[in-house]
Amino acid sequence: MSDRRRINGPVGQTAPPVYASAPGKRTARQLGDDVIRKIFLKTGVTPSASGSAYLEVEDPSTTSPSGTSLKLTCTVHGPRALPRSAPFSPHIILSTHVKYAPFATRHRRGYLRDSSERDLGVHLETALRGAIIADRWPKSGVDIIVTIIEGDQNRDSPEYERDEGWDMMNVLSGCITVASAAIADAGIDCVDTVAGGVAALVAKDAKSQPSIVLDPDVAGYYKVFAACCVAYLPTRDEVTNIWFKGQLPGADSMIYNKLVERSLVACRNANRVLVQSLNETVRQAQIPS
């Protein structure tokens, strides 16, 4: 006898409905090559956590004002004492966990982390470790959990299957920025705010020459040749992590150096949003209730 109080979902995979595109929808990037998409960042969204933040990136391909292509939330738990059975550590133990929501991408994600999510967690830990003053909390641990509510993918694009995982670069950049805001909201001492930025070598159509753009919207280009994601400390002028993916034409080192330089520009732009959000949080805390 079946349980009437439980509604079972479908056995097989399901796909969301795809509606007709709006007339005049662009097929190329409307923003300039040196302009990043608009970022919304807010801290203190999860009261039960020591620190939290929410990041949302605008999708310029949609005509709706509320259309977005990337949504991330981050919670920080700690610092807290490690178990007595744990070996003594003179530095804080940093644990990062990045997970896609099951509905975040076109293909439904499982509940267990896959290799791509583990790679994002490793890169995120490397980027944050260079910013946190670890020796302030001996034999302590902090957990940083990033949930990707919506991945940086255009689900209606007929070129979706050609993305080849390039959207992970933008996802990592957003994870670095939102985690830095959550760490600051938790009151963990850092040498500087770390921000993420992406630059990519793309071809806008079949006949155009490759060019370097900031914060690439993958579905808006004909082909992506290479991309570089950088974690950057603007005040100290230090890079804590670099992730490069792709192949450069002729293995030209000049193009690689330019990709890194343009990624730093994207990092500085994202850091302005990060600093403005933290200043707004401080101003609201100073207002008497």
Rank of each mutant, 00 (worst) to 15 (best):
R26C: 02
K71M: 08
A127W: 05
R84F: 11
T73G: 03
I149F: 09
H91L: 10
G32D: 12
S66M: 11
V18C: 09
P138V: 02
A22V: 08
A104K: 02
Q13G: 13
R113H: 14
T27F: 02
E56G: 04
R80A: 05
S48M: 11
S89T: 14
A127R: 03
G130V: 07
H123D: 10
V122F: 04
L112R: 00
L82E: 09
T73Y: 01
V122I: 12
L124G: 04
I145D: 12
D135Q: 09
T105R: 08
E56W: 01
I39F: 05
G141S: 15
G151A: 14
G24Y: 10
R108G: 10
L124E: 10
V57R: 02
P10C: 08
D33T: 08
T63P: 00
I133E: 13
Y100K: 08
T105W: 03
P79E: 05
L55D: 07
S116D: 15
E58P: 00
Q13I: 06
A86D: 15
A81E: 14
K71D: 00
T96D: 01
L82N: 05
T73R: 01
I39V: 10
F40H: 11
A131C: 08
C74D: 07
A49E: 07
Q13R: 04
E56C: 07
S64P: 02
E125G: 13
L72P: 00
I145M: 09
K42N: 11
S50F: 06
S64F: 06
E150R: 10
E150T: 13
R84V: 12
P47K: 03
S89Y: 07
H97N: 12
D114Q: 03
H97L: 09
V45R: 01
G141I: 11
R26F: 00
I149L: 14
I148V: 15
K99E: 15
A53G: 03
I144R: 00
E125Y: 06
Y19E: 11
V142K: 01
Q30I: 11
P23Y: 13
G78W: 02
I149T: 10
V146L: 06
L112M: 10
I144N: 03
K25H: 08
K139S: 14
T63K: 01
G78I: 10
